[in-house]
Amino acid sequence: MNRSDLMNALEIKDLTKEYKGFKLDNLSLTLPTGCIMGLIGENGAGKSTTINSILGLKKYDHGTIKVLGQDMNAELKQDIGVVLDEVGIPQALNIKNVRSVMKNIYSNWDDKAFGDYVKKFSLPDNKKFSDFSKGMKMKLAIAIALSHNAKLLILDEPTSGLDPLVRDEIIDILNDFTRDEGHSILISSHIVSDLEKLCDYIAFLHKGKLMLCEEKDVLLERYRFINATEEQLSELDPDAIKGKKTGKFSTEAIVDQELIPANFRTAPITIEDLFVFMAKEEN
């Protein structure tokens, strides 16, 4: 067993960052090595602030962040593959140029792997980056992130604005990446269905606060839909109700199965349902 098997890929404790009109409030979460964590939240929930703080793009007011067991530093980024929502490659460069730049930036650059990804993604060799479609830009960013033997991928909205086919392709690639047990992914998205397919852990961010962080399967098992009257709901433990939607004749609620009587008829939820209900309840 090597060292990377023992440590968490990411540990955030009490991360706080305040802007005018927004506060990322005491965020704490842990991503175990070998796992994929999805950071879900509406636009402006604090997903990008969290990722930017991890990467050192933004300075935070309070808290600690450990990545692969260390404080963030330039050398550590050899082991981290990053895809930002706006890719950041200079517009005039073509694949050959990008390749020679990256080859000279990453000491562990795998040129063959990059070439294979370029071929796999059918990326054009001589086209300028500015002439790439949004999907091609994202694929190139992913190819770079996967071509230097990274142990951790940090992806900020990598599937936003892409068509379902490309999104599915990207999800498959990320799934392949985590076949190696030493590889981990932190991925943020507001497209919850993508994360539901991919992630082991789900962290809900809403208005700068972490609402929950749990294993996806535990969430899907523990939280269930019930249909009940307002009167029936009022008799339940208030902590059991995670969110509700009141209709004309009955109320649909998502509840913590462990905190309600066994005689209730329940139905399964999706992560998207849970997120929407919880976020609305919070509002």
Binding site: A74, Q78, V82, I89, P90
Partner: peptide, 18 residues
């Protein structure tokens, strides 16, 4: 100016460079 337009500075900060 081109760096700003392409958001290179953020991207470069994600790479192993000081």
């Amino acid at each position: 100016t081109y760096d700003e337009l392409s958001r290179w500075n953020s991207f470069a900060q994600c790479m192993p460079v000081e």
